[in-house]
Design a binder for these strands. Structure first.
Lengths: 207, 207
DNA sequence: CAATATGCGTACCGATCGGTAACATTGTCA
DNA sequence: TGACAATGTTACCGATCGGTACGCATATTG
């Protein structure tokens, strides 16, 4: 909803599984490369080569590499919320703690995977300290949303100080993102994520 | 102690305050620029220009930009431990909790400063996913040391599960590093750092 | 069949990247 | 004075960076 279509959608129902347009291939390829190696480390030439398209196709669909990076993060943001809310829904809206813990358990185990690279949005903020960068803006907005959502969940759990618990949980989550890519041999500090969250939540429900 | 001197030290007591060698100026300038903007974002030309030296001087003192980045992180690592252990000493070796909390309170407030940029070592790991990069190696070694040290402190506090508490604290700390540079307008989630740590420590001392 | 529009590719741009060769200059100490 | 070590000066290298001018192909549409 936040983004105007960069190319026309293929009319649905006409051609059976139309070949993916160049812009889509670029978007998907950029997503993989940007996430795995970082945005600065990936050149536009590598993107178009791996996507099987050419450079002008990239610049017809995206005004600049920076905007392509921002588009990558918008996709990333959308997928994050989709999975996050799905877990909450799955546990039932009346049981936010179970839904959040499901997310945390999953994150804790993913963070121990061999080539885990953390959160693409957090990583981008590290790569681009300047607030004016379009990709960083997406990252900042996402994190503000996440912060609010965590406080909301803490309130739904009945925490005595929901904002404080939300922020505490956010520190744990971001810590898991970072340490997950620092201790990739499995069994890094992220293994403590769920247990630490349980203890913090408990401490906020006793008041 | 882990690094052979790249240039001879000036003989102490001969010349009164000898002019800083080119290698030192490069090291200091690189440190500031790398930390503030990230390593990939800073070119060697910018470093030598701002340091007031020339490019050959850089490459006479350091074999490559990557090794200069590694040297920057070794300095960073040394300063980190110096300040960290100083706080512990200041609180008394018989009171590790007070020393750690002093560190956490300080970190929590620093993380709210306008242009806070987190931990240079963590940031570098985000910038360089490849384990073979010399700068990343320094980062990984540092984080392993930090993890062990935190578990050690947890044990000294009498925690029931020192490794678990140590890892939990590490998640909070790394979370403060990252969120500190995401919510630079002060009052980010890092404000919860100390309080969350207190609660986690308490929960590990009740067993 | 033409006309038009859309999508894509070839080839190229100037700028900057990390890094180096060869030589001049300086200051220090014997 | 002479030798040496450290730095500066200048000019350069090939590679890669992000970005673009321009023309070719295909397909729909009158």
């Amino acid at each position: 909803m936040a983004q105007k279509p960069l190319t026309d959608q293929p009319v649905p129902g006409t051609a059976p599984a139309a070949a993916p347009r160049a812009a889509d291939k670029i978007r998907r390829t950029a997503r993989e490369l940007f996430y795995a190696a970082g945005i600065r480390a990936v050149g536009v030439d590598e993107i178009v080569t791996k996507a099987g398209v050419t450079k002008p196709s990239l610049y017809r669909a995206f005004p600049s590499k920076d905007e392509l990076a921002a588009a990558y993060l918008r996709d990333y943001d959308a997928e994050f919320w989709q999975r996050f809310e799905a877990r909450l829904d799955n546990a039932g809206r009346d049981n936010p703690r179970a839904g959040l813990m499901d997310f945390l358990h999953n994150l804790g185990s993913r963070a121990g995977a061999p080539h885990y690279r953390g959160c693409g949005l957090s990583n981008t903020a590290v790569e681009y300290p300047d607030d004016s960068h379009p990709a960083r803006k997406v990252s900042e907005e996402h994190k503000q949303k996440l912060r609010l959502r965590l406080a909301e969940l803490a309130a739904d759990m009945g925490a005595d100080d929901p904002k404080l618990l939300g922020d505490s949980l956010m520190l744990l989550i971001e810590g898991a993102f970072v340490t997950g890519q620092l201790f990739h041999a499995g069994g890094g500090p992220a293994r403590a994520l769920a247990e630490a969250a349980e203890r913090l939540i408990d401490s906020h429900l006793k008041g």
